[in-house]
Amino acid sequence: MLSPLKALLSQFFMPDGGGAMDDTRSLQLSTAVLLVEVMRADTHLTDIERTTIRQVLRSKFALSEEELAQLLARAQDTAQTANDYFRFTSAMNEQFTQPEKIQVIEHMWEVAYADGHIDANENHLISKIAGLLHVTHGEYIAAKMHAKAASQPLNV
C-alpha cells in the first residue's frame, strides 16, 4: 500500500548524492517518454515505430539490450501516467544544448515518419514539444525535413 506513495515521492525528492548518473537516467527516460508519446499519438500503432524508437535510443545512449528493454518498459509506464510534458522538457532544457534539443525533435519526427504516415496528433504533439524545448520554428521545420529525407519508403 505504501509503495505507490513511495514511488510518487521519489519522483519529487532525490536522495543526496544523486548526481550525474541520476541526471543521465532522467534524460534518457525523458527522451524515451517523448518518443513513446509520438508512437502513442498515432491512431495505428506499428512495430516499425517501436523498432525506430529502439534504434534511436540505442544509438543516442549506447545502451545494452537489457538496459534498453528496461528503459522502454519504464518509458511506456511513465507515458501512460504522465499528465503533462513539463517534467520531461524542463530536464532537457536544463541539461541539453540547443542542437541536442533539436535532435530530440528530429528523433520524434523519425518515429512519426517510420510508418510512412503522419497523423495529425503526431504533428500536434511534436509541435507542442518543440515549443516547450524552445526550438524555433525554423529549427523545427529543418528537423522535420531532415527526418523526412532520411526516412525510407515502405516496401509494400
Rank of each mutant, 00 (worst) to 15 (best):
L29D: 02
T31A: 05
T31E: 04
A32V: 07
L34W: 02
E37K: 15
V38Y: 00
V38L: 00
M39H: 15
D42G: 08
H44G: 09
T46F: 00
D47N: 14
D47L: 09
I48Y: 03
R50G: 09
T51R: 14
T51C: 02
S59A: 15
K60Y: 13
F61Y: 14
A62H: 15
A62C: 13
E65Y: 10
E66C: 09
Q70E: 13
L72M: 15
L72D: 08
R74T: 15
A75G: 02
A75M: 05
Q76Y: 08
Q76I: 10
T81M: 01
A82G: 08
N83L: 11
Y85I: 07
F86E: 08
R87W: 05
F88M: 03
S90A: 09
S90K: 12
M92P: 06
M92S: 03
N93P: 01
F96W: 11
T97C: 01
T97R: 14
Q98M: 07
Q98K: 13
I102M: 01
Q103M: 09
V104C: 01
E106T: 13
E106P: 03
M108Q: 07
E110S: 11
E110R: 14
V111D: 05
D115P: 03
G116L: 04
I118N: 03
I118Q: 06
A120D: 12
E122K: 07
E122G: 06
H124L: 00
H124A: 09
L125E: 01
I129M: 03
I129W: 01
I129E: 02
G131C: 01
L132F: 08
L133I: 06
H134R: 13
H134V: 09
H134K: 13
V135M: 03
T136E: 00
E139D: 12
Y140C: 00
Y140G: 02
A142V: 11
A142Q: 12
A143E: 04
K144A: 06
K144L: 05
K144I: 01
M145Q: 15
A149R: 15
A149C: 07
A149I: 10
A149D: 11
A150G: 11
A150D: 10
Q152P: 07
P153T: 06
